[in-house]
Design a protein around this nucleic acid. Structure first.
Lengths: 216, 216, 216, 216
DNA sequence: TATGAATGAGATTTCATTCAT
DNA sequence: TATGAATGAAATCTCATTCAT
């Protein structure tokens, strides 16, 4: 009891980058769990081993911290998307992979889905540096567009469906499964965390998206 | 509609039913705007013309009030669904009408979408009397099922797609347009409140759903 | 010890006007002593027998309380001025009385002097409802003007000195004696609270003001 | 004047004297603006380009820094007074010059006036080494005394007015114009920074002081 | 049924200052 | 001489809720 194990404790004199990162990690969890107003700075502090003071030292205020984890949340999914290498797949396969990866990512990162939901509750008021966000996010749409373009030139995809529309459909379907799983379970008794349900949904969503694109 | 005439000044000595209703109306607005933890009892009191005390008098505590508006929110959409009269339309037309009505309803009632989103952030912890909820909500799925059944027996719809799956797809697509409009606007610059966008989305979503069902 | 004497304690269920007044009284003292930023809400609460919470209940925030005592401070001196009945005295006597009363008031109400000093430190940022202030304060200048007018028409006062200028001179001399007494004492060893010094100053200031006015 | 050229970027490795001086300059500004308790060590640090740590390094604590700028403030006006060369002017002219110079100095150095005001709010608690202060400040009174003496021996000045009294009157009138300009503006609408007002006040104050002295 | 006054508990934030090199 | 990181202690303020009639 006397000798503190030093193992978990980031204590003092540690490098600030790690401390910052550590705060962000815990804060993401807490904000995702409780929302912006529901989250308690004290809980974040308690969950790691720092004082609340440190949080204010690094992030100024609660909202500053929130903005930081919001940015981080978007960075995560963008990172995933950037390593897909869809250009080597034929259009239909590429599109399937994009859908499946998106679904899997949101399934494995419900905190991302929750944070985005929370930010929408706040009318996206904290997404200020939109310029950088926009640029990075348009990359996703570009990726979709590239697949569509190939599909169109190969004569398999329709020409009257836009990339952003497809992106919206994919997002909506994958997002909803995670964001609304609780009320859906309560109301319809369907457990969307069930792997079999997941697999079935994956198939359905892929088919739906492909169905929107291919010329029958 | 009749009782609303004196609504602006519920002052004192009004009938309790109206007062209760009045509180619910304002509370819905405030909860939808700010979430459960973000909403302030004081703000609700201020927005109508009663004291906070009245709210406690009628609803016990903040969560009691929240539960009441949650119930009210679901009652609203259910009411809409119950008057659809889809059985007189041929399957494809019926399905289109269901989609369009759903989209329109959520477009016109963003507070419903927001409340459901909020309740999901709270893991549907406040949907207690699930039994009644389930029964009522299964009505929607029943309605979809009825359309599917007719379509199948007419040989136009596939047999391997389930009613609940179709409901989920419709819900997801209509819901997302409202729930995520803020981040979507921030990130992609697309204004989902634009009537032209709305019309376009309505068509796309209808086509997607029909595309999932018809045998090509 | 069990039965609280109820004597000093304004406890609960007391009339709000008295509570409010009580807070103001103590707050005036504390703000005058320590300034706006130096004053502690907790100290004010401790000095009476309420909780800090009550202060926020009545005045919103620290600045709200400060604004209230600022107003009160000005109301005090205005009250004094309004009961002078200078119109029954001949001009020179009236002017002497005005000077003496002003000097005495500020001598007996150093908290007024300090509050005004503090507000000047804050660039009078908290004197918002200037309209009411102006009206009330112009009464002082009116009073001076009235004396001057009589003196002029009697041929004893000069015509080229304005009422506001005289008011400024009186204010400056009386105010300074109180506001700067500490540094003056430290630097020159003169104790301005000494009654003899007070008397001497009263004479000097009266003479100086009269000297500015009379035609020699 | 020479050493100020590189003043804007005192960055690192600069000579300690300059750094100290730089801190003092900024601190004077900040303390004059916000008072002792209102001033923030962090703001002072931010306004120059050092860390707060440096301030503690040089001045020990916030009060130490405050004491230093207080001393500096008095040194400034004393410096001004010491170069007046009043002895070559005839008594009345000398007195006029003294008044005018005082008024101009305080007009041009409101931070001096504010610091003195602040120190009075703190009951001159920080003027510790009074001995040196007294000696230096008595020089002003000596100067007044010298003028009075000459005036008296020339038969133009009264014998019953003391030098310290005259000093107080001059101080009060010049000081008030700066110290109370904000509330005066708010209450009477008179802008004491207006050059025309300044000129008029200069005349009035001179006349008043001379009026106190001359035998009519 | 109705209500004005009051409040405990806890949340966020600030600020001067010290640690460790 | 210089400094980046860290922090204890306390300050302000908020919020749902209850008291007492």
């Amino acid at each position: 009891m006397k000798k503190k194990t030093a193992a978990k404790t980031p204590k003092r004199r540690n490098d600030p980058v790690a401390t910052r990162e550590n705060i962000l990690e815990v804060a993401m969890e807490v904000f995702a769990e409780s929302g912006l107003s529901g989250a308690r700075v004290s809980e974040i502090a308690r969950k790691m081993r720092t004082s609340q003071r440190m949080i204010y030292y690094y992030f100024g205020d609660k909202e500053g911290l929130y903005r930081a984890i919001l940015e981080r949340a978007y960075a995560g999914i963008r990172q995933m998307e950037s390593v897909l290498e869809l250009e080597n797949l034929e259009p239909v396969a590429a599109m399937r992979k994009l859908v499946e990866t998106t679904l899997d990512y949101e399934e494995r990162h419900p905190e991302f889905v929750r944070i985005v939901g929370i930010e929408n509750l706040h009318q996206a008021r904290h997404m200020t540096d939109v310029s950088s966000l926009r640029k990075q996010n348009n990359a996703v749409v570009k990726r979709v567009e590239e697949i569509l373009e190939r599909g169109r030139s190969e004569g398999v995809f329709r020409k009257d469906v836009q990339a952003l529309e497809i992106h919206m459909v994919i997002s909506a379907l994958c997002f909803f499964r995670v964001s609304n799983r609780y009320t859906f379970k309560a109301v319809f008794g369907l457990d969307m965390t069930d792997p079999q349900v997941n697999a079935r949904h994956k198939k359905i969503i892929c088919d739906a998206v492909i169905g929107m694109l291919v010329i029958r």
